[in-house]
Design a protein around this nucleic acid. Structure first.
Lengths: 312, 312
DNA sequence: TTAATGGTGCCTTAATTTGTCACTTTTAAT
DNA sequence: ATTAAAAGTGACAAATTAAGGCACCATTAA
């Protein structure tokens, strides 16, 4: 019997069993254990809601079925879920392996004809344009798993046409403005760093002892690690109303907006090697910003504009 | 994608179509005609009640609804949906009224204890930072409904501290970089315009006759309406590799990236009154761009940098 | 500790799947 | 009658996948 047909029969086979084992599949379909295992993998890929139970008297079982309408979710909720899914779809890589086609088809299947028409019509009229993802990031899953399970990774990281090796302990991953980033502790440099995931060209788990105290660090409190170094420079800039809007559109955790005597300022600190980045960022404010301090930042910005003028 | 998975997705794909052709399959699954044909054979072998109609305007049809193996969402898919929903939650206004608390509870109810723990752990390690919504937009639902049902609206629109009344026929709404926008046809000005939804202070349906031919216009083909006027100015700029990356992060429908003799250029056109906007946009490229034409754009950019220099 | 159960990695061999290409056949519109 | 747009066939080489075997790992309940 060929595989696709066998897989389909398996779907039906498992569907009227609450519980089955590899043995069952092996006997039922006359295949080896290895093949049965691979078939299970194929079933999962298709989207069968099975899960494994380890150990003696273990086996496979079916998950609670997630019932869609009319039972659980109302139309509004279904629309919201549908569009949430569509928004996610615009990522080309995700830290979970998901077949959007499969989710999409499942969704549409569960809907009534009129709901389907509603979605069809709404679909043409609403969109979430986040910046599209620019480069694929291949190792998201391994980075995420390392963060969750507190593992240390050895990665190859590409920077300015050079590739170096780093030993890192990932803390979290996040998506921002078209790129995936990984917050991590660099074991060699003994410092917290952020890596752009598409520049990580390989990643493998090592046996190196992780820092135990990272366990409790999550996305929410990770910023506490970012103590500016002793070389960090404080800056302060006056911004007008437009500048405030721009700040809200583009801002970074280390930069804050404050209100002081009828005026708005943005303040923060930067490491000396980040000055080019800061200059680029501040220039985005155009006329809506005025650097108060330090003087060197003013000087650098002046230099930046002068260079640009000469380059036109 | 492997065959068994594809075959199963096909089952679902054809199930909610009354009619489809080889072309559809080829396009949908990115396979050759021969393979599509072989897949059809496989589907029939499995037992799908398909029959072929020969000749022009032929295709395939389903004899009767088939009974699909009842598959529900698997763990990975549930995780993806959950995070998609969390991402949507960061919008303070949405075009549908949704209680996230209710969705959230329903979600968690369906999960097993171990899945709930998985989500908990992943949650602390992954985030999607889209730009958060900056201002509430109150009339999204009425705008969307007007777009879907082809109604004409009377809106109050605030621009530079002045409020004016407009008669518009909405085409679509979209979310970009923190703001909701509405594409619409301005009945009075007889022109297509984009409105920022948070600046719409009121909106009500009118009985004014809509333009019938907007019915077929959707998000996807709306750009065809944006014929540049006769005053529009063409521009062309040379960009380097960094410039290409910047373009991919921030681009607009009317601007394109082209490859020409080993060099990359961005080209497009702007209306004379948009020149400030274009200058701001081009300045974002920093050193990665060189304006080729027109001369006036170079001049304006030079002026822009000079002003900024003087303002430091 | 042990036995039963799922899971992984690796290898070789066998089989299937795929795309391409040049045809046919059928049907409805013109 | 002609034509265009559909499905369908046969054949072949290349690429991919599946299969079985085997050793060993990981997890769990008795």
């Amino acid at each position: 019997m060929r595989k696709p047909e066998r897989i389909n029969q398996m779907l039906r086979f498992i569907n009227h069993k609450k519980h089955f084992t590899l043995q069952d599949l092996m006997h039922e379909f006359q295949i080896s254990k290895r093949t049965a295992l691979r078939d299970i993998a194929a079933l999962e890929e298709i989207g069968a809601p099975i899960y494994a139970e380890y150990g003696r008297y273990g086996g496979y079982r079916l998950l609670n079925k997630m019932q869609l309408p009319p039972i659980s979710f109302n139309s509004q909720e279904v629309y919201a879920l549908y569009f949430a899914m569509k928004a996610l779809r615009s990522f080309s890589s995700l830290p979970f392996q998901v077949s959007f086609r499969s989710i999409h088809e499942k969704f549409l299947n569960e809907l009534s004809e009129s709901q389907r028409q509603d979605i069809e019509r709404i679909q043409n009229r609403v969109s979430f344009r986040h910046t599209e993802q620019i480069k694929d990031s291949e190792h998201l899953e391994i980075l995420l798993m390392a963060a969750i399970n507190n593992k240390v990774l050895k990665i190859a990281y590409q920077k300015l046409d050079q590739t170096g090796t780093r030993i890192i302990q990932p803390i979290a991953i996040y998506f921002m403005k078209g790129y995936w980033y990984c917050q991590a502790y660099d074991i060699c440099k003994k410092a917290y760093r952020v890596f752009r995931c598409d520049r990580i060209t390989s990643a493998e788990v090592t046996d190196i002892q992780p820092l135990g105290d990272l366990k409790e660090i999550t996305m929410q409190n990770a910023h506490t690690l970012w103590n500016p170094s002793e070389n960090a420079v404080q800056f302060k800039c006056l911004v007008d109303q437009r500048g405030v809007e721009y700040f809200q559109q583009e801002h970074y955790p280390s930069i804050k907006l404050i209100h002081e005597q009828e005026n708005m300022y943005i303040i923060g600190s930067y490491e000396p090697n980040e000055i080019d980045f800061i200059i680029k960022y501040l220039s985005g404010f155009g006329k809506s910003i005025k650097i108060i301090e330090p003087v060197i930042l003013k000087e650098k910005l002046r230099q930046y504009y002068t260079d640009l003028l000469n380059g036109i």
